[in-house]
Structures are given as C-alpha cells and as structure tokens.
Amino acid sequence: MTQNEVPLRIVLADDEPLMLAGLAAILNAQPDIEVLGTAPNGQQAVELVARTQPDVVCLDIEMPVMSGIQATREILSAHETQVVMLTTFRREDYLMDSLKAGASGFLLKTATPEQLAESIRTVASGEALLAPEMTRSLIRRSMEEDQSSGPGRPTQASPDQSVGRDSTVEPLSQRERDVLAQAALGLSNSEIGERLFIGAETVKTHMSRVLAKLQLRNRVQAVAYAHRHGIVADSPD
C-alpha cells in the first residue's frame, strides 16, 4: 500500500474472545487493512457498524443476543458495506441463509491468515467469495430448489449444452455469457480478463450487468446459476 492509499476499514464480531483477538491481530498486521473495532455478538456488531461505517464486516454465525445472519440483515438494510460470514460449521442451511441475507462471502475458520486477508480484499473490491469446501453444496442446493419449484422454472442444462444455445440466459450478450462462464470456474476479475483479453474493470462491468439481467444478488449466486444451466467454460490450464 502506498502512502496515498486508504486502508480497508473492518469490523469483526465473534463470541469467542480468543478467536476475536486472533482475527483482529491477523488483519491489523496487514498494511492495507485496519480493524476499527470488535464485538462479542450480533447486536453490538450492528451498533458498531452504525458508528464506524466500515468497508467490510466479518461476522461469526452462531453468537448470543443476535446471530450473524440476523445482524447481516440489519446491517445491510441500513448501510453500504460488505459482509463476510466466518464459521466453523459446514452447514448448507447456514450458507444459504447467509447468502439470502445478503452476505457477499462465506468463509470457514479453517482458512489460513493469508486466505482471510485476501478474502477481505476480494469482497471489498465488489466481488463475492465462497469457501471452496462449500461450492458443491451451494450448487447442489440451488439445483434442488429449482427442481422443486414446479413447472415453468428453468431446469439444469445438459453438460454439453453451449452457452449460446441456453435460452435461460437469452438476455445476456455473448460477452456477458463468456464472462459468466469463466466466473463459474472461480476465476477472479483479473484472471477472467487475461483469458478473454479484456481489462479487469471491463469484466466487473459485464458481471454487474449479468447480475442485473438475471436478477441475482451477487457473484456467488451467479456461479450457482451458471452451474445449474451448464454455463461453464473449459478449465484453465
């Protein structure tokens, strides 16, 4: 970080004092991240966010007084910030409830300090992230919800169906479909840009249009959507 760059402002909430102190120490050790404050439960996290207006809020899910999921709903209903859920539990219901509440990231506490810091940067840049261990769960749950929603809903496309022939993404331009297909591989904006020979900011613009046209909340939902409909590019070398 240069002298003119402003560090990312973070709020942390966890009901385990040692975990909270450890997270704060890890993130404060990063030159481009500043922890504004910590909270032992969701209610105090909501109050702390209102006072400090951070760029990113990291919330544990299981906390007394108010859960991280409920705190996410209250925070995002009143503030422009990004939320990352941090949890020990690989539970699909926690994952889906977090995404429905508006969280942009879902990370397990088994992540390394480097992965945690990079996750904060990713979410702060406007992208979404999902612990790799939970990706398959998200795709499976999304497919089950589509199949149980009755006739008239999009069904999963066959694996060999081309992006261009998928009627469920008809509103998308060819370039938007290309970007979505690459995002489904878990690539970052810069990596997608390198593969498609366009700039990272252009990729970000295309992804924003994809979310708007498909009425999706964030990039994680877009990835699940892409897998449901067979919109996946060849894996990078």
Rank of each mutant, 00 (worst) to 15 (best):
F89N: 03
V169F: 13
A101G: 03
L216D: 05
D55A: 00
M207Q: 12
V210G: 01
D93I: 10
A21T: 09
A128D: 13
A222N: 11
E34W: 09
V220T: 08
S149Q: 14
Q82C: 11
A124Y: 00
G186D: 03
S142W: 11
E92Q: 14
E145S: 08
G150I: 07
D97F: 05
V169I: 15
K204D: 15
T52F: 04
A222S: 12
D178P: 05
L95A: 02
G105I: 02
V203F: 05
M207V: 10
E176N: 04
E201N: 11
V84T: 10
E194Q: 10
G102D: 05
N41Q: 06
R165D: 14
V84M: 08
G152I: 07
Q161K: 06
G105Q: 04
A222K: 02
L129V: 06
A101M: 04
V169P: 08
Q3K: 11
T122S: 11
G193S: 14
T81H: 03
R121Y: 06
G193N: 09
S173P: 07
V163P: 04
A13P: 07
V6W: 12
N28V: 04
Q147E: 15
V179A: 03
S235F: 15
R51Q: 15
D237T: 14
D146M: 13
Q147L: 15
T2C: 03
A111T: 07
A128F: 09
R195I: 08
L172P: 03
I231W: 02
Q182G: 01
I26P: 06
D178R: 07
E47V: 05
A117M: 04
N4M: 11
V65I: 13
P54G: 01
S125W: 12
S77D: 14
I75K: 02
G42N: 05
M66F: 05
I69N: 01
T135Q: 13
T2P: 08
R177H: 10
H79T: 00
T81P: 02
G126M: 08
A157N: 10
Q30K: 05
L20Y: 04
V11C: 03
L172E: 00
S142E: 13
N189I: 06
G193I: 09
V11L: 04
S158P: 09
N218A: 05
I75S: 02
G152V: 05
G42D: 03
D166W: 09
Q156M: 13
N28F: 07
M134N: 08
A78Y: 02
G22K: 06
E194Y: 03
S104C: 10
V6M: 13
S167A: 12
A71I: 13
A212T: 15
P171Y: 04
S119Y: 00
L180P: 02
E194G: 12
Q147V: 13
L23F: 12
S125T: 11
H229A: 00
P54R: 01
H227R: 08
A29E: 10
R219C: 10
G68L: 09
D160I: 12
A233F: 10
R91M: 13
E74R: 07
H206L: 06
A128T: 14
G230T: 07
S142Y: 14
A157R: 12
V163N: 07
L214S: 06
S104H: 11
T168P: 11
A157V: 12
R175C: 08
V57G: 02
A103D: 01
I198Y: 10
N189G: 15
